[in-house]
Each structure stands twice: as C-alpha cells, then as structure tokens.
C-alpha cells in the first residue's frame, strides 16, 4: 500500500473510531467466551455436585443440561452479536473511510 494512503487513512478520525471500537468489542466478546467456557470447565473440576442437582424438585433432568446447552448457545449468540454490529456499524465506518480517502 502507498505510504501516503496509509498516512491519509491513519490521520482520519473515523479510522481511529473504527479501530478502537472494533478491537474493544472483539476482545471483550473473546474474553466473555473464555470466561463462559472456563467457568463451565472449572465448575466441573471443582463442584460437580452443582451440575448434578435436579433442575426442579424430583426431576431427572439436572442443572448441568441447560448449563451445557447454554454454553453451546452462547457461542452462537456471541458470534451473532458480533456480526450484527460489525456488518452494520463497522462496515458503515469502513465505507465512509474508503469514500473519504480513495
């Protein structure tokens, strides 16, 4: 890429807005996924009884079932949240930057 183009983009305030918003959002969501997954694993490692208890009085279904399925759904939801914002807000910002500098 041309050095002057790089300079033009880097001095555009919208570029800084895009970079800081996206990296904050992406790393936050990545951290949320790590916390959810390792939370689940550490509960299993240190407190199996929590997941083994009945979901309601007398039920065979344990708390572990909705928690486990919840971890699976959370992965899907988190990617959905990211796409929803990125394909609207981040792509709009990117297109505005392109229009201004190219």
């Amino acid at each position: 890429m041309q050095q002057d183009l790089v300079h033009a983009i880097r001095s555009n305030p919208k570029y800084h807005e895009l970079v800081s918003k996206r990296s904050k959002f992406a790393w936050t969501l990545a951290a949320v996924m790590l916390v959810i997954y390792y939370g689940f694993i550490l509960i299993i490692a240190f407190d199996k009884e929590f997941l083994a208890q009945s979901l309601w009085t007398g039920s065979v279904t344990t708390v572990g079932i909705p928690v486990g399925v919840g971890v699976i759904l959370s992965a899907f939801l988190l990617t959905g949240i990211y796409v929803f914002r990125a394909n609207a807000e981040f792509d709009r910002l990117t297109n505005e930057i392109k229009e201004e500098v190219l």
């Binding site: 992406a26 790393w27 969501l29 990545a30 996924m33 959810i36 997954y37 689940f40 694993i41 299993i44 997941l51 344990t62 572990g64 079932i65 486990g68 399925v69 971890v71 699976i72 992965a75 988190l78 990617t79 990211y82 796409v83």
Partner: peptide
C-alpha cells in the same frame, strides 16, 4: 451420558474466537 456433552462443548468454543480475532 453427560460427559459426552462436556466433550462436545470444547469443539465449538473455538469458533467465536475465530470470529473475533
């Protein structure tokens, strides 16, 4: 039983990481 569920979860959680990073 349930251990199979725990095992399967690990195979999915890489995907959000791929998405974000």
């Amino acid at each position: 039983g349930y251990d199979g569920l725990i095992y399967s979860v690990g195979w999915l959680v890489g995907w959000p990481i791929i998405m974000f990073l």
